[in-house]
Amino acid sequence: MNFNLIKKVLRDYKFSILLFGFGTAAYGASMVAIFPSIQTSANDLMSYMDKMPSAFREAFGMSINSFSTLEGYLSMEYFSMIWIFILVAFTIAFASQAIAGEIDKGTMETLLSQPISRTKIILSKSLVWIFLILLIISGTFIGVFVTAIIANIKVEYLGFLIFGGVALTFFWSFYGLGMFFSSVFYDRSKAIFAPLAIFLAMYLLDILSKLYDQVDKFHFLSLLKYYGNPVEVIQKKVVPWNEVEVLLTVGLVFFFLSIVIFRKKDIY
């Protein structure tokens, strides 16, 4: 690790972290704030939902809990959709900047003329990403918890913590992918596009797998499968180790590959 580089990257992200941290926290808080009025209409909403095909309900994470419990509601409306889009986008943007972005801007040349190894550059930047993603996840949960306390809504704290861990491994898997493409490409836009396209394809595959049996056999290819339905993790309060292992491994493999590629990469 290189403390100077860590300090610099943290400085680079000071405004975006405020934006992402407060943004996700405020959005989560607003979801909690409107939950009581959703809860009072739960029966009406459920009867409306019952008219939909069951596969459709499953595909979008709708269940009996979706309107009657805070966990179910947040899971369907926030943690399965907008939240992962925002955090995956942040992760991919960070990873693409870490290598391809610096090469693209020409600053990597100056950085690599200093006595710092390429491995240390990746490790130092990755430590910053872990810190920032933890900050955003924590910010979201703090927003949810504080608003829930104010609104007097019961919250499964342990369940949320376990879900936070699962989510972290999910974002880690995309960080690995993002770093892999960042080390392969010289152009930052390509380093953003490739993992983003993979994420969108996986998101689509996840939905189609739940809708169509013939697609389900390919469901294992989508990392969303291992992220699962957040409400189940929160309510069961049990770590889904098998899924976590897959996510950690995917992240580690691609992260390791990114180090190998970057160490041998010509910097033009």
Partner: peptide, 20 residues
């Protein structure tokens, strides 16, 4: 390379030096 760079000063042909 790492040891070499400890004793080296480098100016790139088209210096891009963290504009922010």
């Amino acid at each position: 390379s790492l040891k070499v760079r400890e004793e080296l000063g480098y100016l790139a042909g088209d210096p891009n030096l963290y504009p922010t």
